[in-house]
């Protein structure tokens, strides 16, 4: 069952590449694998925690105020992540900058709270949060690997191709758009092919 959930979160319902949620932080923080991975892990943490809490209190919250309540819960965990990052990983916090507090408006978290956690039990919500977070992290890493290698000729801070002068545009804004266009198109192409061969 866990394996199916993993497959769902990372492949078939990948929040970034299939559901197209959480765009803003993805393009901004995928300039290097360390940043992308760090952001992905922060989002996974918030997603898992908020899913659990929201699932626990789902019966007690009246429908009308559920969105503000979700936001308060999510914002609490985001603030905790902010404080923890500032104290234990200050370098990462500086790199991610404004996008750490912006995790609170990451559509993935609110989306999963609304679509899943408010309708399922805590354990299932926890697993959903974790696999969706891992899917997000995986897609961030794919984008980061491409952008870091092409844009700064490095991977994890170490040089990659000898004698290659990097295309700086890839770690700047346009590069982010082009990279995600390519990755998304590839994902769709592969998805379409699978559908054709199955049919």
């Amino acid at each position: 069952m866990l394996k199916e959930e993993l497959k769902r979160g990372i492949i078939t319902e990948n929040p970034l590449l299939i559901l197209v949620l959480g765009l803003c932080p993805s393009l901004a923080t995928s300039t290097s694998v360390q940043n992308g991975f760090g952001m992905g892990m922060a989002v996974t943490f918030v997603l898992a925690c908020s899913n659990v809490i929201i699932s626990i209190v789902r019966k007690g919250i009246p429908g009308k105020v559920r969105i503000p309540c979700f936001i308060v819960v999510i914002a609490t965990f985001v603030t905790m992540v902010q404080l923890l990052m500032k104290s234990y990983l200050p370098a990462l916090d500086k790199q991610l900058g404004i996008f750490v507090p912006l995790i609170v408006v990451n559509c993935i978290i609110l989306g999963r709270a609304e679509a899943y956690a408010s309708k399922n039990n805590p354990l299932k919500s926890l697993i959903d949060g974790i696999v969706m977070g891992l899917g997000f992290t995986a897609s961030l890493c794919i984008l980061s690997i491409i952008r870091e290698i092409l844009g700064s000729n490095k991977l994890l801070g170490l040089n990659f191709f000898p004698g290659y002068d990097p295309m700086t545009v890839f770690i700047l804004a346009p590069g982010g758009f082009f990279t995600i266009a390519a990755v998304m198109a590839l994902v769709r192409y592969l998805g379409n092919r699978r559908k054709d061969t199955k049919a």
Partner: peptide, 11 residues
């Protein structure tokens, strides 16, 4: 994807 490419060119 084509929207992203368009955005990229604008960027």
């Amino acid at each position: 994807p084509i929207a992203f490419i368009t955005a990229g060119l604008m960027a």
